[in-house]
Design a protein around this nucleic acid. Sequence first.
DNA 1: CCGCATTAGTTGTCATGACAACTAAGTCGT
DNA 2: ACGACTTAGTTGTCATGACAACTAATGCGG
Lengths: 173, 173
Amino acid sequence: MTATQPFSSAEATAWARLVAVSELLPTMLDAQLQRDVELTHFEYLVLSVLASSPDRTSRMTRLASQTNATLPRLSHVARRLEEKGLLARFPCPQDKRATNARITDEGLAVLDRAAPGHVATVRSNVLDALAPGELDQLAAITASILSKLDPEGRLSATQCDAAKDRPEASARP
Amino acid sequence: MTATQPFSSAEATAWARLVAVSELLPTMLDAQLQRDVELTHFEYLVLSVLASSPDRTSRMTRLASQTNATLPRLSHVARRLEEKGLLARFPCPQDKRATNARITDEGLAVLDRAAPGHVATVRSNVLDALAPGELDQLAAITASILSKLDPEGRLSATQCDAAKDRPEASARP
DNA sequence: CCGCATTAGTTGTCATGACAACTAAGTCGT
DNA sequence: ACGACTTAGTTGTCATGACAACTAATGCGG
């Protein structure tokens, strides 16, 4: 009723589509990984971050920020992954408060089994859709948005520039 | 271990950031709306679609596709919104299988109360972050991705071009 | 070196989303 | 006009995420 017309037509379009993508993309990723290897996309992310971490190990807090998650969320997932034998937790010697998480050999195996299908899904649903030039635009736009969503730059993707520094790293997707 | 290097560095960066946005954005939207008006972002979307529908009414199936949701999901949410008095459901006279959902006066009131804060959040977290030109790039990129995620174009945002056709409509954000 | 604030994690509760199973109404072929 | 098929929607079950409350270890000021 109030006459305020908050978004311009162009803004409304872009916003509606971004919302749709944020809704559909996670669902699709979860569905594919669940179907193929009984893993959540978030679990996959956790494992893949660990796989490319020094000594296959990361502290819970750091792992949480690397995966854009809250600590409680990660803690629950770590327990489940541990029960499945894909991950091991052990106390950090230096700081007895802290917990280290390490991916097991079995975890690596599952990851290797999962990777091809996951990569194919990402390609066919996202990367292949982009016209030349749109990849860099997407990187720039998401960086802008993340700088607002995560001002402290605590979370992984914002630091993702760091990943660019080591292009030879055995980066799992 | 397998040497396949599935994503290029640029791809990995863009992808990681898109994943981060898809993770953080819905959480942030839910948090703001929940705090301010005890509404999920999805509930807000449902109400706002209804508010700009003819006769404030839409059929469940259509409403589901307009909000990028599955029918079961919408059904649950509709029941909750009905319990809160923000929405009314009644059988469609023409097709007795179908159910119409209409937003109530109270629903409109809540929506009006919610809109300013929501719009401000969207602006400050997303739209304001974009450099000139990036808005259109974002619209184009998300359109491309949606054409893969939702090939049939069943869901709202893909049809969002239709929204462009009626720029004077009392579109709620 | 003692107490208070801070940091690291874990656990419990509750709401929400996906999926499957089900009911009911319309449609189509013969 | 009758039985099979399809469409519309609802409901139940289960897993997952957010948030709050809790425990435990560290660090800092006096």
